[in-house]
Design a protein around this nucleic acid. Sequence first.
DNA 1: GAAAATATTGAAAGCGCTTACACTTTTCAA
DNA 2: TTGAAAAGTGTAAGCGCTTTCAATATTTTC
Lengths: 332, 332
Amino acid sequence: MSNTIYDIARQAGVSIATVSRVFNESPNVSSKTRKKVQNVAKEMGYQPQGMAQGLARRKKNVIMAVVPLLSNYFFLQVLNGIQDAISETNFELHIYNVKSSEKPVDQLKRLLGRRWADGYLFVSIHLSDSEWKMISQFDQQMVLIDDAYSACNYFQVNNKQGARKATRYFLEHGFKRIALITAKEESIPAAKRRQGYIQTLTDWGLTPDESLIVSGDTQYRDGFNEENGYEAMQKLLEQTPNPEAVVCMSDIQAIGAISAMKEQNLSLPIIGYDDIQLAKYIGLSTMRQPMYKMGKEGTNVLLDQIGKDQPKVVQKEYIPDLILRSTSSQQN
Amino acid sequence: MSNTIYDIARQAGVSIATVSRVFNESPNVSSKTRKKVQNVAKEMGYQPQGMAQGLARRKKNVIMAVVPLLSNYFFLQVLNGIQDAISETNFELHIYNVKSSEKPVDQLKRLLGRRWADGYLFVSIHLSDSEWKMISQFDQQMVLIDDAYSACNYFQVNNKQGARKATRYFLEHGFKRIALITAKEESIPAAKRRQGYIQTLTDWGLTPDESLIVSGDTQYRDGFNEENGYEAMQKLLEQTPNPEAVVCMSDIQAIGAISAMKEQNLSLPIIGYDDIQLAKYIGLSTMRQPMYKMGKEGTNVLLDQIGKDQPKVVQKEYIPDLILRSTSSQQN
DNA sequence: GAAAATATTGAAAGCGCTTACACTTTTCAA
DNA sequence: TTGAAAAGTGTAAGCGCTTTCAATATTTTC
């Protein structure tokens, strides 16, 4: 069960070149020889080894999706899109999980240097511009999903618009003291969403109140975690008067916030962000991002570009949808 | 940024053998040469290509985790365990996602033939004995997680015991008409759980009532889906008298079942299976499986066996824990 | 200070495949 | 028939690395 092209060639009484041709569907093989080789190969359970092919061809027919901690619904949706796009080709999808214990950029450098794949999809990997620049120098085909870098292909949701939509919804429903539960300062999506929130208030003629913009102290996953939302909400509820409505940077924070409210028998209107699976079940209103779509379209662009030397850069932004469920209304 | 060992050798004024030695931490290099090579390599951003190394060494330092549709919390937990185990080594983890559109065994055959990895972790891949036999013939190191085959390493939860625990809980709390919401007949875990349920009733002196064992008609994911639970519950509620309590084969079915109950303003005690993330939030009682642990221990066994020619087979069974939350009590 | 022992290096073969090129066989028009 | 074109096949080089073995340089020993 572990034979090489030589074994097949010997058994079929042909040269290895011919065996190779059969497996590469070259037209230059007589149908008689082809049949013979195919039979022998089938019988002996032969398949070309990926490594040897990769080396000889300088092409592996592998796409690698690089994701951070495989732990959330967002990636899963994106991965489904990727998977579906790849299924239609003869590429394989390998997934690489970036650990939280080491700087992402270092892990990427190591990974890219090894050249395991023909193309890379970076899903929700957030690097600085200089880090992306460094990564681009590896000269590999790649597309960013859920992050942006001006010199790369990317598919991203417009975070600013997302926060705007949520904020505007509350404004239009008569709320004024709208709080924002935010995440780590350095997080780029967090910063953009914050901007969107502030601009919307300003556009509406209100003066943003810094004391209504809070984050919890628990910082793992850049503050996008349940405890963080809980803590943030506690801080908000210490203020008088209480805010009238809450915009959250993630569903998971919203969940934490809701439990903080419950403890005080409150239920302020709140909107999350992400539309994680849970959201539907607990009736959380939220901003939904087109995850599947980004995965699929991003992959198609990547596949399309592999092999071309100077493909043109594709960049696309999506606007998230506001999904209204029960938590956004006054008496939820 | 795309240079080979030759480039480094030339630049450093040594032979490629020496460069290779430096990268393989061979002791037979003078520290002067080592430094020189390291500097050049760093400067030129060199890293050995995985494919070439794999071919030359016949070892890739890659472990591949094979999972079916990356869509559920169970895998994610297992993957976390795997990841943590691998982090402590210099292996890389690549993940391969089995598609639902093609027979799993065929995908595995294709994958194993390519020899991308040194060892394989099959997570929740359920094959028949003859199929696993076929797969074993590839003569690759592997461990099964969440499935069993007598000739392989495996780490599994005892499905029968899981169902027993849930059923016994209800019996001990005075229920008699206990329904079982099951999945596809052919699913092995489903069959085992069913056995556990039936045996427990029998041991308790009751005669299992076939009409209380139902499944919905929606069959994707082997019936482990929300609609299936919903439909099953509807069937149960058509019967008079209604069952007194419900044991479910998965949390997701339990969720479906609960919404069916809600529609009729009922809330029978129910226990799910899996302890998905959602369960905690909706207060679903459930059977928790040691997913992280299985992932980690399974990986350690695999890593340990790689390289050995006749490693001894490791097989382990875990008993799931009953997690009591609100849905299992009378008035939830 | 020379021989022996040891440390360091390089040349070359090989891992399993692809593919350019050369060679042989078949086909077919004249 | 013949010969040129077309089709089929094999030889050999190469993909980027590891590793054995032989060669050379350095150290140690007395």
